[in-house]
Design a protein around this nucleic acid. Structure first.
Lengths: 189, 189
DNA sequence: AAAGCTTGTGCGCTATAACGCACAACGCTT
DNA sequence: AAGCGTTGTGCGTTATAGCGCACAAGCTTT
């Protein structure tokens, strides 16, 4: 008999707090009988009841209803996954997209004179740019912003944006893309 | 009359898909009358009904029940927020903790000979290390791992871990800490 | 103007969530 | 062994989720 996340999570929260059904009922305001029904999968709680549980245990709702799997540990050596983009811009995947964290990270290299304009991502996508070395510019809201080594910017990537390097040297930036809950299933390549 | 997240999110999902209550009922298997009740806040849907909605709209559950606020855009110049830690290690907050993304990012500087051992974070905390420059070592599972410029590692930070620089030069790394849903309320300073 | 279609709301009925309470089973104390 | 307290389950009752259907209102077509 497969158990649902709410069954497993409620039992785990209760065990972690070392509470019986009776004590949990006092803590959350949900009856002892209903708690037992939820844990045994005999009843599907309403959102109002879920809120009582979350509030009583001081947990966000997602901690009760979602399947909390584990993000694996990863080593990413410097020589990993270097690819070319559009015949010129180089990028390397530092951390591949992780569905639990909802994010992925790249190291991008802009040689002197190179530029790149990105298609807007889906609604709610947030992008971080941290300049590792060199000098570059970031296009946001039709305006170029100059960034130097150590500068960083966070912006809404669901709008048109781009990168360029007008300096004489090479620029590199560490680029993290955060996908919202609503958008993870439509992640572009 | 304040509306709950489920009211706003269901109406937004329907509007985005351009569907009437009738079409949405066909798509999700939840009756037209119930959809109206949910949107007007007249009924609290069960978890089973929420699943039908999420599945019909191809959305994760969280997208229906959580308050999806917006992460603000941020500029973080190189001279920002540089502080000393334990009288020796320098670090700068690049992106402060954001409750929506559940993450924060720092730039840490290890001078020659410096080391630092971190207390374990709460359960489920994930840490990313990307070496921006220099050479350093990362302590995980009682073992030191050597990292050079461009190397990166992702690891479970709820276990003892540390950093040290045994080289002759300075090392810098970009450090992102991801907090799990269940732990965001207990974030350490 | 009349007819037809779409949309959202309200109503009454059925199914089930949620509850209080009793009780079986178990463990601990006297 | 008897008594007491704790724990989880089951039952019957109440409240409400969820539904099909009718209908008012609005819009489009004839």
């Amino acid at each position: 008999m497969t158990k649902t996340p709410i069954q497993l999570n409620l039992r785990a929260a209760r065990a972690k707090a070392g509470l019986s059904l009776s004590k949990t009922a006092e803590l959350t305001g949900v009856s002892k009988a209903m708690l037992g029904q939820i844990e045994r999968g005999e009843s599907s709680p309403t959102l109002a009841t879920l809120w009582k549980l979350a509030k009583g245990f001081h947990l966000p709702l997602t901690a009760l209803i979602e399947d909390l799997a584990q993000t694996p540990e990863t080593a990413s050596p410097a020589q990993n996954h270097v690819v070319a983009l559009q015949g010129s811009i180089r990028f390397r995947t530092v951390f591949a997209f992780d569905p639990i964290l909802g994010a992925e990270s790249f190291l991008l290299t802009l040689e002197a004179g190179q530029s790149h304009v990105s298609q807007p991502h889906d609604t709610g996508v947030i992008e971080d740019v941290f300049v590792v070395s060199g000098e570059m510019e970031l296009l946001r809201n039709e305006k170029w912003h100059r960034l130097q080594t150590g500068d960083a910017m966070r912006f809404h990537a669901d709008q048109s944006h781009g990168y360029r390097n007008l300096s004489d040297g090479t620029a590199q930036f560490y680029n993290t893309i955060h996908y919202p809950k609503t958008g993870v299933f439509t992640r572009p390549s």
